[in-house]
Measured scan of single mutants.
Amino acid sequence: TTLTVNTQTYTFTSEEEAREFARRYGAKTIRKTNGTWEVHG
């Protein structure tokens, strides 16, 4: 199964959650914005 996250942004309140998600789905960018963490595919 392949998950494609081209134009979607996922927002997390903790860096740990964001990094775990990025690691699991191979997202390329993690960015902190206004106190939340954004993961970009």
Rank of each mutant, 00 (worst) to 15 (best):
T1S: 13
T1I: 10
T1Q: 12
T1E: 12
T1M: 11
T1C: 14
T1N: 13
T1V: 09
T2G: 14
T2S: 14
T2F: 06
T2A: 13
T2H: 14
T2P: 12
T2L: 10
T2M: 11
T2I: 11
T2Y: 06
T2C: 08
T2K: 10
L3K: 05
L3A: 14
L3C: 07
L3D: 13
L3Y: 05
L3G: 14
L3W: 05
L3Q: 14
L3E: 13
L3R: 02
L3N: 14
T4I: 13
T4L: 10
T4A: 14
T4F: 06
T4R: 07
T4P: 14
T4E: 13
V5Q: 14
V5L: 10
V5K: 07
V5S: 13
V5M: 11
V5T: 14
V5F: 09
V5R: 03
V5G: 14
N6K: 06
N6M: 13
N6T: 12
N6E: 13
N6S: 11
N6Y: 09
N6A: 13
N6V: 13
N6P: 13
T7Y: 13
T7P: 10
T7V: 11
T7A: 09
T7F: 12
T7H: 11
T7C: 12
T7E: 08
T7R: 05
Q8R: 06
Q8E: 09
Q8F: 12
Q8A: 12
Q8W: 15
Q8M: 12
Q8T: 12
Q8S: 10
Q8C: 10
T9A: 07
T9E: 05
T9S: 08
T9F: 12
T9Y: 13
T9I: 15
T9K: 09
T9L: 09
T9V: 15
T9H: 09
Y10F: 10
Y10D: 01
Y10V: 08
Y10N: 04
Y10R: 06
Y10L: 05
Y10I: 07
Y10M: 07
T11R: 09
T11H: 08
T11C: 12
T11I: 14
T11P: 02
T11N: 06
T11G: 03
T11M: 07
T11V: 13
F12R: 00
F12E: 00
F12W: 01
F12Q: 00
F12N: 00
F12K: 00
F12T: 01
F12Y: 01
F12D: 00
F12M: 00
F12P: 00
F12C: 07
F12L: 00
F12A: 00
T13W: 07
T13E: 12
T13I: 08
T13M: 08
T13V: 08
T13G: 09
T13S: 11
T13Q: 10
T13P: 06
T13A: 11
T13D: 11
S14Q: 03
S14T: 10
S14A: 03
S14V: 04
S14G: 02
S14H: 04
E15A: 05
E15M: 05
E15P: 02
E15I: 06
E15D: 02
E15C: 06
E15Y: 15
E15V: 04
E16I: 09
E16Y: 08
E16W: 10
E16F: 07
E16M: 09
E16H: 09
E16A: 12
E16K: 11
E16V: 08
E16Q: 10
E17Q: 07
E17W: 02
E17P: 00
E17N: 03
E17S: 05
E17L: 06
A18E: 00
A18W: 01
A18C: 02
A18K: 00
A18Y: 01
A18M: 02
A18R: 00
A18F: 01
A18I: 00
A18H: 00
R19W: 09
R19A: 06
R19I: 10
R19Q: 08
R19E: 10
R19P: 00
R19K: 12
R19M: 11
R19C: 13
R19V: 10
R19H: 07
R19T: 08
E20D: 08
E20A: 09
E20K: 07
E20F: 03
E20V: 04
E20N: 06
E20G: 02
E20S: 06
E20H: 04
E20W: 04
F21D: 00
F21V: 02
F21K: 01
F21E: 01
F21N: 01
F21Y: 07
F21P: 00
F21L: 01
F21G: 01
A22T: 01
A22M: 06
A22G: 03
A22D: 01
A22C: 09
A22N: 01
A22V: 03
R23C: 14
R23H: 09
R23G: 06
R23S: 09
R23E: 12
R23A: 10
R23K: 12
R23D: 11
R23F: 07
R23V: 08
R24E: 07
R24F: 05
R24N: 05
R24T: 07
R24Q: 10
R24L: 11
R24C: 09
R24S: 05
R24P: 02
Y25H: 11
Y25F: 11
Y25I: 15
Y25N: 10
Y25S: 10
Y25V: 15
Y25P: 00
Y25Q: 06
Y25T: 15
Y25R: 06
Y25K: 05
Y25M: 12
Y25A: 08
G26T: 02
G26R: 04
G26D: 05
G26P: 03
G26Y: 03
G26K: 05
G26I: 01
G26V: 02
G26E: 04
A27V: 08
A27S: 07
A27C: 14
A27M: 15
A27E: 04
A27T: 06
A27Q: 07
A27K: 06
A27N: 05
A27H: 15
K28G: 08
K28Y: 11
K28S: 14
K28W: 06
K28F: 09
K28R: 06
K28M: 13
K28H: 14
K28T: 15
T29N: 07
T29G: 05
T29F: 14
T29S: 10
T29K: 06
T29Q: 06
I30E: 06
I30Q: 03
I30C: 08
I30K: 03
I30R: 04
I30V: 10
I30S: 03
I30H: 05
R31S: 09
R31N: 07
R31V: 12
R31I: 14
R31G: 04
R31E: 09
R31F: 10
R31H: 10
R31M: 10
R31Q: 11
R31W: 07
R31P: 05
R31T: 11
R31Y: 12
K32M: 11
K32Q: 11
K32E: 11
K32V: 08
K32I: 07
K32P: 04
K32W: 11
K32H: 12
K32G: 08
K32N: 12
K32D: 03
T33Q: 11
T33V: 15
T33W: 08
T33N: 14
T33I: 14
T33H: 12
T33M: 10
T33P: 13
T33F: 09
T33S: 13
T33L: 11
N34E: 06
N34S: 05
N34W: 01
N34Y: 02
N34R: 02
N34A: 05
N34Q: 04
N34G: 06
N34K: 03
G35T: 04
G35W: 01
G35I: 01
G35N: 07
G35R: 01
G35A: 03
G35P: 00
G35D: 07
G35Y: 02
T36A: 09
T36S: 08
T36Q: 11
T36P: 01
T36E: 08
T36I: 15
T36W: 07
T36M: 14
T36H: 13
T36V: 15
T36D: 05
W37S: 00
W37E: 00
W37D: 00
W37P: 01
W37V: 01
W37Q: 00
E38C: 09
E38V: 13
E38Q: 07
E38S: 03
E38R: 02
E38M: 05
E38A: 05
E38T: 07
V39N: 01
V39Y: 01
V39W: 01
V39P: 00
V39S: 01
H40S: 13
H40F: 13
H40Q: 13
H40P: 04
H40R: 10
H40M: 14
H40Y: 14
H40N: 08
G41P: 13
G41N: 09
G41F: 15
G41R: 07
G41D: 07
G41C: 15
G41V: 15
G41Q: 10
G41M: 15
G41S: 14
